[in-house]
């Protein structure tokens, strides 16, 4: 029995070490290849009738209105707009929050508004944002299942991407909520890629949840170019090009 536990712990330690030391490189390569394949695919499609001429002012306007504020969804479906806005707002908040771990900003940024406010911003608010993120994802997933074969036909990758995102979010939230176990002190600085991607942790997270989170996150990043989450990139490019190209203005 003891041997089994030791063997399991050794296996987990090996997987966890792999997820920090090797997987980041694999993630980078796979993501790069995925993006390259996408670009090749777009280049292989028939050329557009019209030369793409972008008007920078119009492009920024359309990106702000359509991508940041979801203007069109606001006009057509207010409930969906709220879900979309909360989901994407929480994504923005979570990405921003993670930047602190990578020392792009620090808690001092909020200290000007008082210590209690700064504490709220970096320790309390993220937990609620995490819940919003998970709840909106569940909503989108349930909505998709309910509309499947009625109003939409999903590709397998639509679901794989959504489920992967949901699992990694649950693991991320679990990491905050489940008390930590004994974690090696070296994990205070998690060096994914030396001098390039280094995560600085202030508190020790629960090891299992933390590693599940980083493994799933890397799998998710690798999967983005092969899934509908490519809209993270193209969803900005498309309104910039097509919005700016739209000339049907009233005269």
């Amino acid at each position: 029995m003891v041997w089994k536990v030791i063997a399991l712990n050794s296996l987990l330690a090996a997987i966890y070490a792999f997820s920090v030391e090797k997987l980041p490189y694999i993630t980078l390569v796979v993501t790069f290849i995925g993006v390259a394949l996408r670009v090749m695919r777009w280049r292989s499609s028939p050329p557009d009738h019209e030369k793409i001429r972008m008007d920078p002012v119009e492009s920024v306007k359309y990106v702000l209105l359509d991508v940041v504020l979801f203007r069109k969804t606001w006009r057509t479906d207010k409930a969906m707009w709220l879900a979309l806005f909360l989901f994407h707002g929480s994504v923005a908040g979570i990405v921003f929050g993670h930047m602190r771990g990578f020392h792009i900003w620090s808690i001092h940024m909020f200290e000007a508004f008082g210590h209690a406010f700064a504490e709220f911003m970096v320790h309390t608010l993220p937990i609620y944002v995490g819940y919003v993120f998970i709840v909106t994802q569940v909503y989108f997933l349930v909505r998709r299942v309910m509309l499947e074969n009625k109003q939409l036909t999903s590709m397998p990758n639509d679901y794989i991407a959504l489920v992967l995102l949901l699992l990694k979010s649950i693991a991320g939230q679990g990491m905050r909520l489940v008390p930590p176990e004994g974690v090696p002190a070296t994990l205070y600085n998690v060096v994914f890629i030396p001098r390039f991607v280094v995560l600085h942790l202030e508190t020790i997270p629960n090891s299992h949840w933390f590693h599940i989170h980083i493994i799933l996150t890397q799998l998710f990043i690798m999967y983005v170019p092969f899934s509908k989450f490519i809209h993270i990139i193209t969803g900005v490019i498309a309104p910039a090009i097509y919005g700016s190209r739209r000339k049907e203005i009233d005269r």
């Binding site: 359509d66 069109k72 969804t73 006009r75 979309l84 969803g235 309104p239 097509y242 919005g243």
Partner: peptide
């Protein structure tokens, strides 16, 4: 087109 969040034509 008017309800597409990505503004496709």
């Amino acid at each position: 087109m008017e309800s597409c969040p990505f503004g496709f034509q």
